[in-house]
Design a protein around this nucleic acid. Structure first.
Lengths: 145, 145
DNA sequence: TTGTTTTAAGATTTAATAGTCTGAAAACTG
DNA sequence: CAGTTTTCAGACTATTAAATCTTAAAACAA
């Protein structure tokens, strides 16, 4: 059950890395993040770029440059990040992929699916980066030492 | 939020079509299903073949041949179908895509995700084709008339 | 100013998914 | 038997997602 694309997962991991790293508002280079989390540098750059364009990150070029959270971790909700990276219709899609499915013309799975989707959505909306910040982060944001 | 591949969605729709079509144990041609549900014939053939190899469908060649449910709709659970079409590890994957994530080395989302996954899984396990059988099926298994 | 470090932008390549096509093999029909 | 209808098996093509590469632009440092 893959509900996030690689890009979204990478983006979330990078944000959690930043959130956990510290309250020091210093820029962290994408090189460091990609190395620590073992994510392709160029691909991660692209993902983080789209977060920089949307008030999730701020970026700065040159030596000692990098990216930093644009706002306090308490105010960055998972839902916001996912909608940016996966598209605004992320929570709208029919389980069976039927474009016309909805309350008017529900597919056989519609109401059940609607229910699960809503519960995941509300979790994503009520969970912020701060809620997931943890001390042992590095150990848990990559798959090997 | 696309949690099923196109192939799985097509397979489920075809099964629901068969289930709703009738308790008459007649073979229904894949041509009819693909036409009624507006799914590529050849692609659907491939999907249904893998269900025929796994005791979900039985198939028969020649005139008046086709496919039919191998068992009563009450006994065919969504989870079974999805595991066949998406792979046995469908309910095992980490939200952030980390291969080593688990109770021993949980990623920041692990326990939340584990919880949601379990609830969807149990719904898939307790829902059978019979539960989803509905009279107005055709209207709701395709997106246009 | 020249060189280094960093993000930005976008072209290109690779891999995975989705979909198409062709030629069988099985079962029926006359 | 010859011809038709169907599934079966696998090669092939197309589309999208994922990853890489290249060149630029911004910021700093000597």
């Amino acid at each position: 059950m893959k509900i996030l694309s690689n890009g979204s997962a990478y983006g979330l991991r990078a944000l959690l890395y930043l959130a956990a790293k510290g309250d020091t508002r210093e820029f962290v280079s994408i090189g460091e993040i990609s190395e620590q989390l073992d994510i392709s540098f160029h691909f991660l750059t692209k993902v983080l770029q789209s977060l920089s364009q949307k008030d999730i990150l701020v970026s700065y070029r040159g030596p000692n440059g990098g990216v930093a959270l644009a706002r306090a971790p308490e105010t960055i909700r998972l839902s916001e990040v996912v909608l940016i990276l996966e598209g605004e219709d992320y929570f709208e899609k029919c389980l069976l992929g039927l474009p016309g499915c909805g309350d008017q013309a529900p597919c056989p799975m519609h109401y059940r699916w609607k229910h699960w989707k809503a519960s995941i959505r509300s979790e994503f909306e009520s969970t912020t980066l701060a809620d997931l910040k943890e001390p042992e982060l590095l150990k848990h944001l990559r798959w090997a030492t």
